[in-house]
Design a protein around this nucleic acid. Structure first.
Lengths: 344, 344
DNA sequence: GTGAAAGCGCTAACAT
DNA sequence: ATGTTAGCGCTTTCAC
């Protein structure tokens, strides 16, 4: 009890220290600590006790180098403040929980070069798999992924060519179906409000799909506006005000995410604008937050958590049973009409 | 141009491959790739070109083992869905950007045993430093941290005994000052609404400080209510309704976070309850979201981003110049009255 | 400015 | 059930 950790702070403990303390070979200590191979109960006890007493923490760097195996899964997302990605990450963590694999998160801030750098850094740790948001990458990044020799899962989006596996939804179709629903509900003077970020490819695809849907009915967007930075809720208010001011006869606004949509909704309620009679509104993502608003904003669930789970399951499957790869999982978002689209 | 990466997918490239492709020794290739030591320009060119052509990604596992240096900083937080932590993480990432250090994130879900497990896993990769939220840990975790021989920074909270360095605010004092401000404004029938999580020590400390502040004026909490799970905004509405129903003469509600506070505010606006005249409200954190609400909820900034930056700066400082450690940084949150506390 | 040898701390493979 | 040997891919150190 007395001399726990009197060891020098500089030098970390090694297997050898545990070996000496327990009078058992390094190899056997290693077996005990990894639950690998047969070890007698008495030996196991002694080793475990010695390791505990010393406060030994294995060196995975050495272990990984020797075994050529790393229990890490690289997960690369554009942002954490988006509300969307933390949920994806939860799904991944949850699914990986009992697989022996550990997620490691990297953030790109929606910058392709940043993605490339993060990826390079992560691949240099030789992870067991990569989960990366989106299908758009620099050439270098794409080539790194193709040559990594590990399972790659691109998530969120299925509109494009996948490197290996892909799990997501079609944002183009999401936009398209929203447009159809809106047209069917009788709206015709329609605006799109979104983020300015040129690298938010999914928002862009939703807008493209949306325009295609309007085109089917011979319509086109009356106005658009894009923001960057700041409180999304506030930006939603401001942009809504601006676009209404510019287009007094506007009858629908499609927002690229629920936060700005919620801001728009609050603005309309404040100003006494009749929703959905005079003005219809819809967002995207299906975030929890909406449940607490005075009215339910129409939205489309992006299946965030499930995307994380399915992606993680693919990586875990590979590492267990060496699957083939190249899987494609397209989930189908459901349109929730809420209270902000006129019912016909 | 033709035969880029015809290499076998199984075996990753090594320094030797680059060495052979460039006709330079492994050692010199290593020097080039790390910008270490003198290498002639012509040699450097050849090596870089060969590495690029092959698509070589260095093996940091081997590098770390040989050099006994790892450019990783372990960052451990309770949650990502809290809105608070993503901001702390941004602060850390930002500060570490040009330090050569890389943050690696782990999540504990407010569970002490989970924290211990995550910590163990992370320490086994021998990071250059640890940033961990909170001062409360299991004995084993505490002992691991003390014996890791690397800089440890506990963040968010300064009310307690630190292992090494600490960066945060006093949540007790935050609660205390909120109570004083409320009492001064003339409120006296006061409720506290928060999360049920027993391991949210900071929310607990705010409540304790708050009660102490009320006690100074001979007051005590009229009612409390705690929730877990679900949409915080919605829970805020529900709990507010419940507590008002139980205590018709209630004149103030202190929420443990801004999200439930915002829910409460929206509820009051819906119901036409006069805020702050009949009922005062206050939250905690100072999240962006509040800016988009119809009224400004009173809150206290938790200095999240700055906490991340300062903590990261301490770790980076250590790794550069071998500082002494044991720093203590207490930031001071500012009370923003907004529109939901009566002005006197 | 460049190369050769030794070894980081562990585990695979093969003893016994 | 336990021990021995070799080596994972790099970097450190020292030689030239």
């Amino acid at each position: 009890m007395a001399s726990i950790n009197t060891n020098d702070q500089r030098r970390a403990l090694t297997l050898r220290d545990v070996s000496e303390a327990s009078g058992v070979s390094e190899m056997t200590v290693s077996r005990v600590l990894r639950n690998r191979g047969d070890v007698s109960d008495s030996t196991r006890e002694r080793v475990l006790e010695a390791a505990r007493q010393l406060g030994y923490v294995p060196n995975k760097i050495a272990g990984a180098l020797a075994s050529q195996r790393v229990n890490l899964v690289a997960v690369i997302v554009p942002s954490l403040s988006n509300l969307v990605f933390p949920e994806v990450l939860s799904g991944i963590s949850e699914e990986l929980e009992d697989s022996g694999l550990q997620p490691v998160f990297g953030v790109t801030n929606y910058l392709a070069e940043r993605e490339e750098a993060v990826l390079y850094e992560m691949l240099s740790w030789r992870p067991s798999g990569v989960i990366v948001a989106g299908l758009e990458h620099t050439d270098a990044a794409r080539s790194m992924l193709m040559n990594a020799g590990i399972p790659i899962v691109e998530i969120m989006d299925v509109d494009g060519e996948a490197i290996d596996s892909v799990v997501g939804i079609s944002h183009k179709r999401a936009g398209l179906e929203m447009a159809r629903a809106i047209v069917k509900a009788g709206y015709s003077k329609i605006a799109f409000l979104g983020t300015k970020m040129p690298h938010d490819h999914r928002a862009r695809k939703r807008m493209e799909g949306f325009e295609a849907g309007l085109a089917e009915a011979g319509l086109s967007l009356t106005d658009t506006e894009f923001y960057s930075g700041g409180s999304a809720l506030l930006k939603g208010r401001e942009m809504t005000e601006a676009v209404i001011w510019r287009n007094p006869d506007l009858d629908f606004i499609y927002y690229s995410n629920d936060m700005i949509g919620a801001g728009g909704l609050l603005y309309c309620l404040d100003k006494g604008i009749e929703v959905p009679g005079k003005l219809g509104l819809a967002g995207f993502n299906g975030v929890d937050l909406l449940e607490g608003l005075p009215r339910q904003l129409a939205t489309m669930d992006a299946c965030r958590r499930e995307i994380g789970q399915r992606a993680a399951a693919i990586i875990a499957g590979h590492s267990e049973s060496g699957m083939v790869g190249g899987e494609r999982v397209e989930l189908t978002p459901v349109l929730a009409y809420g209270d902000t689209i006129r019912r016909v």
